[in-house]
Amino acid sequence: MLFALANKSILLSTSFFVILILTVGIGFGQTGDSSEKTVIAIIWIATALSSLLSIKEMFQNDFEDGTLDFYMLSAATLETIICLKAFTHWITTNLPIIFLIPLISIPLGITFYHSILISLVMLVSTPALSFISTLGAALTLGEKGGNLLLSIFILPTFLPIIIFGMKISILITNSIYDIMAHLILFALSLICLAITPFITSAIIKVHYS
């Protein structure tokens, strides 16, 4: 956390999120009709993009300066370290965004109650995004300028989460709200927690074979 603060990566990702939301909001503001549903779609896409931007740093520095070699040799399994990496990624990029959503959705025209509910939806579903991101970070490890490639690989894999999250957020704006919806998204996050560390560690081992 402190390291991330020192790296200013929290500031960077949150300011990217705010600027993206404001730019798109201003663009839509010119059309005169910004419905709640469009705004929610913008929020989801902005969250996905801002977590996409910081994926590259997840393993790249450790891979270049050899820290990853020590992780491979250390007593802790690689899967544990990947889980911790994903967790820190979630804390540093997604958690600040979740706190920002109630604030930023007021000028965009979402009611305060709805925005609280939507940020709760985000709270249970964004861990899945962080865990999926580790896959892309491992795939493009050591690739110079692999940012474009990474977004080609990773954005489609965000889709199940985005589809589910959008449907549930739309249900919230229609005032049909059920705690089950949160449980489904939480289940998706747990599935990603269960599957992705093993795949990621297998991919990282490919780079060392």
Binding site: I132, L135, L139, F153, P156, T157, L159, P160, I163, F164, I195, I199, A202, I203, V206
Partner: peptide, 16 residues
Amino acid sequence: WLCIIGSIFALMSRYA
């Protein structure tokens, strides 16, 4: 590995 990841997530999106 990309192909395997793709199949998993394509299936998940289909059910989504």
